[in-house]
Design a protein around this nucleic acid. Structure first.
Length: 561
RNA sequence: UGGGGAGUGGUGAAAUGGUAUCACACGUGGCUCUGACCCACGGUUUCCAGGUUCGAGCCCUGGCUCCCCAGCCA
């Protein structure tokens, strides 16, 4: 119970206030209410963290409720993926798994009550006529010809709608509120529509389906939700929420509060756009590691703890905002830094021969899995032999002034091993390309502190050529080239801003032998590169495939020699 | 032009009438067998204009800008 913590966000402040005032007898119940018509993304993760987080902090419960009121778009495969994603994020709804579609009977009865009370009526005009009658932002709507239908007629019509006597669109049930309301949402909102469609859970049992504005508040009330937290675009809908719940439930009843949804730079968050990317094959699927979907981030290697840390860091407020990628990536790194063991991988190999190292000598070095400041134990064995591979970018024939890596005639340490000196650079006589470095090692330097010029160098990663394991490595980058791909001029599409270099597949990579047995899902820090995960789908023992989760920060900016 | 919301360093947030704080990013320096991590230092005066007050990011008045609302989607 963190209720006494200072600097509560506005939602926690409300819950804290209500709890202390005993509004709900001290009870707290929130809910996460997805519609099963798509995959969850990082924006949902924010909402999940808020709803489950508040419930946990105040000793309450958070329900997982599927708001499944539209038979035409919903599917069981989505409820399964949503359940998996919420659980994976680390949250538990316990016995509180609900479906709005289980409330259809109760909801129907409530609609009948409203009709009896003269608060709802059947409108028999076309959608177009209804739209016209609604007026505009500046002009009031007008009363339609069916608005004052007798209660008995309304009851009869609604029952026959339910019985399937009418085709889609023939009638709708509307709340009788105020056609001149300045809030457009209150101009007799639609409560039910006829849909002769098969519902993924209710089959053909129903021909009338409740609208979100009807089903959502009443489902909250049915479940005894106390704080119904949703996003800003529902602010206008709150009036309907209040009207319905006040008309059908006693106090204390649930109340709706709205927060700003998450926007992330260089990606898209709308279900429609995400669906488009998947369906048009612009990404490999819902779990494409470049996508901001939970499934994508899981495949990418983001840990749930890192995502939760991110959610905590961005906080929650009512101001529309756009979060930079760095914030997300730093949270992911921060989490992994303490939990991902270190390993060496050479992504773009350059041959190096230690000329004063005996041909057949192999030295098994025990190298710590963790940097000293991590405070963790454990080592892995890394064989060192005469012929090794180092990173191409760790050698420069003509280095800048602040170069700390290998240079002709210069020394650097093989991480966990010896200092080597680059004695000779072998080039392709035709192209000038560097083919091999001929080096010599200092036998006295193993485990010895660096002195003199050696202090100005850095230790580099390496692998033994004959012991290294070949690996495929996928390096991911932002999916779009512009910060806000949804903000495009008329006539253009977000798809024009897809980043052609959002994934780079490196096939000739070499990793240290210990990594051969990496199990899919294992995460490592490849030193001086970043965090990587053995891909759940494609990695196999002996033939590992790694995804770069996120790179390490790199402040190095070369200065002129 | 109607209604509902929102404006605090580059980004996200805090400060609830009393010295503008934190994280990320950025810059500088330190440390380092990862140019990582870690540590230190640096830049903002709260959308604008008035007003109330000893004192205003917080209160009042008037503007400005942005977002949402006219689906039988949610």
């Amino acid at each position: 119970m963190l209720a006494m913590r200072e600097n509560l966000d506005f939602l926690r402040e409300i819950v804290h206030r209500d709890t202390h005032a005993g509004v709900y007898g001290g009870r707290v119940a929130t809910r996460f209410p997805p519609e099963p018509n798509g995959f969850l993304h990082i924006g949902h993760a924010k909402s999940i963290c808020i709803n489950f987080g508040i419930a946990a902090e105040f000793g309450g419960a958070c329900h997982l409720r599927f708001d499944d009121t539209n038979p035409e778009t919903e599917d069981m495969k989505y409820v399964e993926s949503i359940r998996r994603d919420v659980r994976w994020l680390g949250f538990d709804w316990k016995e509180n798994l609900f479906f709005a579609s289980d409330y259809y009977e109760q909801l129907y009865e409530m609609a009948v009550r409203l009709i009896r009370d003269g608060k709802a009526y059947v409108d028999s005009r076309s959608d177009e006529e209804i739209r016209k009658g609604r007026g505009t932002i500046t002009e009031p709507g007008v009363h339609g010809p069916y608005r004052d239908r007798a209660v008995e007629e309304n009851l009869d019509l609604f029952a026959r709608m339910k019985a399937g006597e009418f085709p889609d669109g023939a009638h709708v049930l509307r709340a009788k509120i105020d056609m001149a309301a300045r809030n457009m949402k209150m101009r007799d909102p639609l409560l039910y529509r006829i849909r002769h469609a098969t519902h993924y859970r209710r089959g053909d049992a129903w021909c009338v389906y409740p609208m979100y504005d009807f089903a959502h508040p009443l489902s909250d009330a049915i479940e005894g939700i106390t704080h119904s937290i949703c996003t800003l675009e529902f602010e206008n809908n709150r009036a309907i929420y209040d009207w319905l719940v006040d008309n059908l439930f006693p106090e204390p009843r649930p109340r709706q509060y709205e927060f700003a949804r998450l926007n992330l730079d260089y990606t898209v968050m709308s279900k429609r756009k995400l669906l488009q990317l998947v369906e048009e094959g612009l990404v490999s699927g819902w779990d494409d590691p470049r996508l901001p979907t939970i499934a994508g981030m899981r495949r990418r290697g983001y840990a749930p703890e890192g995502i939760r840390l991110f959610a905590a860091r961005i906080g929650v407020d009512k101001a529309n905002s756009r979060v930079s990628m760095e914030l997300l990536e730093d949270a992911i790194r921060d989490d992994l830094n303490a939990r991902a063991p270190r390993a060496m991988a050479v992504l773009r190999p350059l041959k190096a021969t230690i000329t004063n190292w005996p041909d057949d000598r192999v030295e098994k070095l025990e190298i710590p899995l963790w940097p000293k400041d991590a405070g963790k134990e454990g080592t892995r064995t890394v064989p060192l032999a005469r012929e090794i591979r180092i990173e191409r970018t760790d050698f420069s024939p003509d280095p800048p002034a602040d170069w700390r890596r290998l240079r002709p005639g210069g020394e650097t340490r093989l991480m966990g091993g010896y200092f080597i000196r680059c004695d000779e650079v072998v080039r392709d006589p035709a192209t000038g390309e560097v083919l091999e470095l001929r080096c010599s090692y200092d036998p006295e330097s193993l485990g010895a502190p660096a002195k003199g010029d050696r202090k100005k160098t850095t230790a580099i990663q390496w692998v033994s050529a004959s012991h290294a394991v070949p690996a495929e490595v996928r390096v991911y980058d932002r999916l779009f080239t512009v910060a806000d791909p949804e903000d495009v001029e008329e006539g253009r599409t977000f798809k024009e801003f897809l980043n052609p270099a959002s994934v780079e597949v490196l096939r000739g990579c070499l990793v240290e032998p210990a990594l051969a047995s990496a199990a899919p899902g294992d995460r490592f820090q490849f030193v001086r590169h970043g965090y990587f995960i053995a891909d759940e789908a494609d990695s196999r023992p002996g033939a590992p495939v790694f995804n770069r989760i996120v790179g390490l920060k790199d402040k190095y900016r070369p200065v002129a020699p």
